[in-house]
Design a protein around this nucleic acid. Structure first.
Lengths: 254, 254
DNA sequence: GGCTCACATTCGACATCGCCGAATATTCCG
DNA sequence: CGGAATATTCGGCGATGTCGAATGTGAGCC
């Protein structure tokens, strides 16, 4: 791990959490001398990765990130191939759909089709949700033991507490692990009020050519509509299968 | 400029251009030994800024960029305040609108309202366009001499050629500079087929509390509808003014 | 309006940290 | 199954980034 790059990344992460920070604040956050932080920030700034706020002397994330992230989305094969299918799923199910991939202990939404009822809804692409608190995340965890290991805690019976987002968030690794067997069996994961109150979701795995689960697809429904009826669950499973097939998968988990 | 961070940023830029690259290809692009590049890439990877492609051994941009860019957009004051206004402008003008900020010699679109005719349109947020080939860019250049300096070439009468995107792109710094006076006078910049054939646009500056132009707003119209009629031009100017006012500007350029 | 303080920024010397070449492991070809 | 191209690991030398002190700058207070 190259020290300077590690520090630079931590600067970006700090700004991600705090939006606007001065050199001194950053220095405190990273436990480094201000002059050191200044050098890092200047380097990042010269590439547009951070920007100085117009008239203050604090720094914020920079516009280059937007360009990079746009290219990132374009390079994702899963996403490109999934778009048509998810739109169709949203239309048929009358619910919003999400496509997510893993980012450490979170799921990041790489595509979102709003619920097709004509209401204005905030686009969710780019949002990230703790893996253990979402149907998307549970799918990714259930099919990736290594990831589950790192998220749920170090190995054996460690009763590490996970972060609760609502009163219904499952915070015990054991409870979650118990769900994984069922998820693998049914090819679907459920979640009810675990990330956002009033919101539930069902997710299915998407596999690539090698059979690895590379993404998850979910439909999001009001908690009052939970559990989703079989028509929706089947449509979801079918859609995930079709996307997997398009990625070259010959067998898939569900 | 810290060397390691500079190199890391150049890795990201290379991946931005080429989508997928192996260590050897990256090493060639940056003119560095492969082992050096490997260290850099590994460091970036450990923060999710680059990712190894699922089964090849090439690297691509990573999901952390998406999360960062999402926060970047949330951080932008101009954007938050402009949203309501641009939606209204799109509705009234019946054209698509764009909000852009400067990123070196380009304009990056930080918000896009699709043309409200119900057709499916690709979202343009995150797209970047060379500053000299867009109405948005011309506005930003006209009101920022320092920026114009660096984009149009080093000072005096250097006849540096700018990149042509279409046959109609203005590639001579002199021609562009001549437009700037008019732009400042009218508070509007025009562009016709200079970035994309068949597409024209008109843009207006957005100023902040200190009177600095921090963003530009444009309406995009089919070339066949150019020049935009006065109703549209006035609505555009009004909208830009309203946004500026909301940012605390007491005087604005147009 | 002047003074003070806190913060950002610059600079240079020391020592650390990352760079690179060679060796090894791995993957992808034929 | 063999060979080549590529990714990856490792360690010693030296360039590079780090940090403390000095300077510049702005804001807030009396």
């Amino acid at each position: 791990m190259i020290q300077a790059i590690d520090r630079a990344a931590r600067v970006l992460t700090s700004l991600q959490g705090a939006r606007h920070l001065g050199i001194a604040e950053l220095a405190a956050a990273l436990e480094l001398p201000p002059s050191t932080v200044h050098g890092i920030v200047k380097s990042l700034q010269s590439h547009g990765l951070v920007a100085k706020e117009p008239h203050g002397n604090r720094y914020m994330l920079g516009p280059a990130l937007l360009k990079l992230s746009n290219v990132y989305l374009d390079t994702l094969d899963v996403r490109a191939r999934a778009l048509r299918w998810t739109a169709e799923l949203a239309r048929r199910s009358r619910f919003a759909t999400r496509l997510g991939v893993e980012l450490f202990d979170e799921v990041i939404i790489i595509h979102h089709d709003p619920r097709p009822d004509g209401t204005e809804q905030m686009p969710e692409t780019g949002l990230s949700i703790p893996a253990h608190a979402s149907a998307l995340g549970k799918v990714l965890l259930a099919y990736n033991a290594e990831l589950a290991q790192t998220v749920l805690g170090s190995g054996s019976g460690a009763a590490r507490q996970l972060r609760a987002l609502t009163g219904d968030t499952l915070t015990s690794p054991r409870e979650l692990e118990q769900q994984f067997g069922q998820i693998r069996e049914r090819g679907l994961a459920d979640e009810l009020d675990e990330a956002v109150l009033g919101e539930a979701s069902v997710a299915a795995p998407i596999a690539d050519r090698s059979g690895t689960v590379v993404a998850a697809l979910s439909v999001v429904l009001p908690s009052s509509d939970w559990p989703a009826d079989d028509a929706v669950r089947n449509a979801l499973r079918e859609t995930a299968r079709n996307i997997s097939r398009e990625l070259g998968a010959t067998r898939w988990p569900n």
